[in-house]
Design a protein around this nucleic acid. Structure first.
Lengths: 342, 342
DNA sequence: TTGTACGCGTTATCAT
DNA sequence: ATGATAACGCGTACAA
């Protein structure tokens, strides 16, 4: 049995028409008689013909593949965004290639290159924490026509469409909620400030304080990563310094979880003595010993929007210049027991 | 500015050598003088030449792409397996395409076809719950050379390598653990028995009972899905029928979670009155009000093993016939408070 | 309505 | 050591 699949040549020989006719019949070209179309399609099915997308791509320049670069795929946030992108693009015939940067800008660069070599039609990405310079991205814009779309973790580069949530607003909402619950001394676990998202959450936090006539105390802001351990450490630092807050707004659910664990260990009551609210609405937050408040980033919707923006940009590419789109989604505040004192 | 990248033709014209020479120089062919190699490589760099993988793939028949089909990507288990596969294959120059079947065999079929059209070098998959017939998979084996690798949710098809955990053993371990903790009337939330994994977990449960001189009571086995709601319903059914168990071994963490919620609502104490143990070791299990015991499937390792098996099968493809590999990983029992009475 | 012939960018097989 | 050219499979402009 020959496992090489049939080509249009094989079909053309079998029924004595030219390859051109076969090709056109298969693509429902208007100027082909219904009779030959039927015959071609029937024999194509019989011979188990499968179109070779490679050859087609080589000719057309479109691979119908897109790439996605994220730090890691097995997080709730990124895998959900990927789900959204896949579901939006799959009906349009696109395949989705995923790459992991491991938060390393050099790996990110390498993936960017290999994706371009693979001729993807577009690249979706959330930059790594170590991505400071953006020349490697800028140069792609300058030397190729491959559109790049940032989601969540963006950089300000003209010509690149972005899909983000309003992190500023998320930070503002969370903080304002704590204020309205009567908390007076709200601290903030800020994330890596190299990333805009964490800058924005911090700024939202600050502005909410200001708008409600609270002082912004720099001592109340601590930089943490997104791990349980760093949340534990942050609590230790605050409580050992005796600059004790009565509420924590963490830019990360995991750090917030660590905080809850350390507070419990110290017999500090949540939410009576200290409120905790996180960010991302990780699945575990609702199942915790004390369900934790959090800000949802609607990641699946973010992915779908990213997909839509890409599809639009591909369509309007008759005009030559593609228009830069900026989509900002609304964050959703989920209030649970960890921050309700009233 | 011309955004079309240079080809080997452009290079050959510029330095007056043939394309063949350029190609060979670029590929470090032994019979090309060092001088020309240097010249070619230098001008290639100058002209910002990028190899067109499409053309190469068309010629060689290898795309260096693999496909993965899973029900959904945004679950901890599947995204972790994907992570493992990506990390294993990326160093070998492969790109990973992800597809979601949404538990629908028809969508699964469609993806299988589009992946083949895209000429992927291999397909990793976990079959959907609605995959009963396997002709569509068998026919790929018969008509193509594209290797298929099952992980976790497999079907018995000769010639297909599989990577699974020992679900039987997982079920056995969980049940035996409950017995040793002194529970006497252990019920089981079985999953969709169309899938082998759930069959095996059930069988492991049964055998553990038998080996410890317990009766296997069919009334103690209930089929549930993998959702919180179905776990709640299952508890309702058991407790309303007055056939009250003192332990639950659930084949799903989410159903187990639902059970915990419903038991709490009914003021039934875990683990004193009823023990609960789940399956999958979802992240949330350790952060629950009462940390829940569970069986870990080591998904990242599963993905890495799947990647390795693929790489091996590609390498040994000089022999023509590829050998079917069956990898069985050991499940890991995580004992937490929800099942410790002693 | 259908056929001929070329090009997409590479690699490989002959030659030389 | 290098060059000319065929092939990979497809779509399409140009002919007929």
């Amino acid at each position: 049995m020959n496992k090489k699949s049939a080509t249009i040549y094989d079909i053309s020989k079998k029924i004595n028409v030219s390859v051109a006719t076969v090709s056109r019949a298969l693509n429902d070209h208007p100027r082909i008689s219904q009779a030959t179309k039927d015959l071609v399609k029937k024999t194509a099915k019989e011979m188990n013909y499968k179109q070779n997308n490679l050859a087609k791509a080589l000719k057309s320049g479109e691979t119908k593949n897109v790439g996605i670069i994220v730090p890691f795929v097995n997080t709730n946030f990124f895998s959900s965004v990927i789900r959204g992108i896949e579901e939006e693009l799959s009906p349009h015939g696109y395949h989705v290639i995923i790459c992991q940067s491991h938060e390393d800008v050099n790996i990110e660069k390498r993936h960017l290159n290999t994706l371009l070599n693979a001729q993807v039609d577009g690249i979706f990405m959330s930059v790594s924490k170590t991505t400071i310079d953006t020349e490697h991205i800028q140069s792609i814009l300058d030397t190729t026509n491959t559109p790049i779309i940032f989601f969540d973790r963006k950089k300000d580069i003209p010509g690149i469409s972005t899909i983000v949530i309003d992190d500023y607003r998320g930070g503002y909402m969370a903080t304002e909620h704590l204020i309205k619950e009567g908390y007076k001394n709200i601290c903030h676990f800020a994330g890596d400030l190299n990333l805009e998202i964490y800058q924005n959450r911090l700024n939202g936090y600050k502005q909410a304080l200001i708008d409600h006539n609270f002082q912004v105390k720099e001592d109340n802001i601590i930089i943490t990563g997104s791990s349980i351990e760093e949340g534990i450490d942050a609590v230790k630092k605050f409580w050992d310094k005796k600059s004790i807050p009565d509420a924590i707004f963490s830019s990360s659910d995991f750090a917030a979880l660590g905080a809850c664990q350390e507070l419990k260990k110290r017999k500090i009551k949540i939410p009576q003595e200290v409120a905790v609210i996180g960010f991302s609405n990780e699945p575990f937050t609702q199942f915790m010993e004390l369900p934790m408040s959090s800000v949802d980033q609607t990641p699946v919707i973010m992915g779908k929007m990213a997909g839509q923006v890409f599809i639009e940009s591909v369509k309007e590419n008759g005009s030559g210049v593609s228009i830069e789109k900026k989509v900002v989604l609304a964050p959703q505040l989920y209030i649970r027991k960890s921050s309700k004192r009233k």
